[in-house]
């Protein structure tokens, strides 16, 4: 009897340990009822569109524009700051959360890089934290060489949104 309990406990620990050791979650997100309804105030529509479609394609969280019958969960806006070290930022707020794209940097980026920044920030809005250097959720989104979710990004997404 005791042996069965010990075996079950070890099995449970082995199931939980990899998640806590390797998963990268913020503990916060912009998802409301498996959905992110967004409002668009950014000039970088291509980047925003790419970010929405590349994560929406994974299927677990519906990412769609806000409408007259829904409440916005997320706003896309632009900033222009030369003194800060970020090209994109996601912040949780009372009311709609906010993604800011820093045009001081984005205006000199290629389309590929702009999409990388926007997709990275959308990853934060989905609750994902920074992870590895060869993933979209690397702390420097334009350093990874990717602008779509990679294997670990997807693994984190599916763990968080089973």
């Amino acid at each position: 009897m005791h042996r069965k309990i010990v075996v079950a406990a070890v099995a449970l620990a082995m199931l939980i340990a990899p998640l806590s050791a390797f998963a990268h979650f913020l503990g916060n997100d912009s998802v409301d009822g498996r959905e992110i309804r967004w409002e668009d105030y950014t000039a970088y529509d291509d980047a925003r569109g790419h970010a929405n479609s590349t994560w929406d394609a994974l299927g677990r969280v519906n990412i769609a524009p806000d409408s007259a019958t829904t409440i916005a969960d997320l706003e896309w806006r632009d900033a222009s700051r030369s003194d800060v070290s970020w090209d994109g930022m996601w912040s949780a707020r009372t009311g709609a959360d906010l993604i800011q794209l820093n045009s001081y940097y984005l205006r000199n980026y290629t389309t590929f890089k702009r999409r990388a920044v926007a997709a990275h920030e959308q990853g934060h809005a989905l609750g994902l934290a920074h992870s590895y250097s060869n993933q979209l959720m690397n702390s420097c989104s334009t350093c990874s060489g990717y602008n779509t979710p990679q294997s670990h990004d997807r693994s984190d997404y599916y763990s968080l949104w089973p």
């Binding site: 090209d87 912040s91 702390s139 989104s141």
Partner: peptide
């Protein structure tokens, strides 16, 4: 406490890049 998450423009864990920025 609210943590805001950013994408840095460079890999600042490399102090040479931090100093250059």
């Amino acid at each position: 406490t609210i943590h805001v998450d950013v994408s840095h423009v460079s890999d600042f864990s490399d102090t040479r890049k931090l100093a250059g920025f």
